[in-house]
Design a protein around this nucleic acid. Structure first.
Lengths: 196, 196
DNA sequence: GTCTATAGAAAGATAGAC
DNA sequence: GTCTATCTTTCTATAGAC
């Protein structure tokens, strides 16, 4: 064997190392929020040392910016009509906020990071650019952006109580009953408001 | 003058010192959450040293438990009927989640502390014992606790987006329009669900 | 009852070797 | 391209003087 003794260094490949760090960061930040994880831990999950996180992303904050972009950019639901929006949003919310569901999602990332003002500002900007902009395009009538933000508020609140806090009623309720209640509530916002 | 030189020690009074620490902690935790503030800072706001916090409350976590109790125990609204509940909740939510409103309130304390699992558990227990229990008593029909938690989710979500994240639509919307939208949405949850 | 001083852990970021 | 080692700060909590 020509392999030298001592721990074998990771294969040197900037692109795959960078991606490994980003993947580990997405998982970690979505599950524990910006302040809940350290760069050491993310680096260890990616199989590298903490130094490389700063080498590739400048700082923990720079890494978080990329994570937010990756997680918030893809649409959660792709509806055709406002009625479709209500139905699919209620469906997706109930499914994805279930206790055992995949924790990698934009709402959990937001909720767990929002207490940090720097992280909240990064999330706010990306949320407006991606999520709110999409919702506002789909809602007919006046106050489209405002109603989009209200709709998003309901999604965030349910996520908070059901998945982050874990109140027993929302954990134990039959999913179809929760879906019915949510759809009825969201429909009020999705329909064009009475102008006055 | 008989005053000795050097910094004057605080007047020794256990009860008032304890209360000063608790008051400072309520303000600090409500504005920045459990992990956002250190014991040193709370102590400094109360005019004492960090050591006394642990002396009177055992630990930062013990102090937080008392703060949660103080903030969550008093009811935010005291309605007589379900319709009253909807109207007053929408009113109070719009007024108290306004950008310039008093930050000392149960929702902000919850939202800013929930990312920490220990703090979340403390908040969860107190929220069930106080807030959810009150709501469930007021809602007629089946699934009272579950609908109470949904109602609370809407309140938390609006608070999150309007006051913590600060999305522009919810910051700039005329308060009466927001109140109208919220009341319409909450009414769907407050009315007894169709059984079956 | 309150203080100063410090222990002990963990965080983000950087220097310099290989 | 990646590592080890370290700097600096910040945190909770405790020991012991007055």
């Amino acid at each position: 064997m020509t392999t030298p003794p001592g721990p074998e260094p990771r294969r040197r490949n900037a692109a795959s190392t960078r991606q490994a760090i980003l993947d580990a960061a997405v998982a970690a930040f979505c599950q524990r929020g910006y302040d809940g994880v350290g760069v050491r831990e993310i680096a260890a999950d990616a199989g590298v040392t903490a130094m490389l996180v700063n080498r590739y992303f400048g700082s923990k904050e720079g890494l978080f910016e990329e994570v937010v972009e990756v997680v918030l950019a893809p649409p959660s639901v792709v509806p055709e009509t406002p009625e479709d929006l209500v139905r699919r949003t209620a469906e997706a919310l109930v499914a994805r906020s279930a206790p055992a569901a995949d924790p990698e999602n934009p709402f959990q990332l937001t909720l767990l990071s929002a207490h940090n003002p720097r992280a909240a500002e990064i999330v706010r900007a990306a949320m407006l650019r991606h999520v709110v902009a999409r919702l506002a395009r789909l809602l007919p009538g006046d106050l489209a952006q405002e109603r989009g933000e209200i709709l998003l508020s309901v999604v965030m609140g349910i996520w908070m109580m059901r998945k982050v806090i874990g109140t027993p009623g929302l954990v134990a309720i039959p999913p179809e009953q929760l879906e019915t209640q949510l759809a009825a509530m969201l429909a009020v916002i999705a329909e064009p408001p009475a102008s006055g």
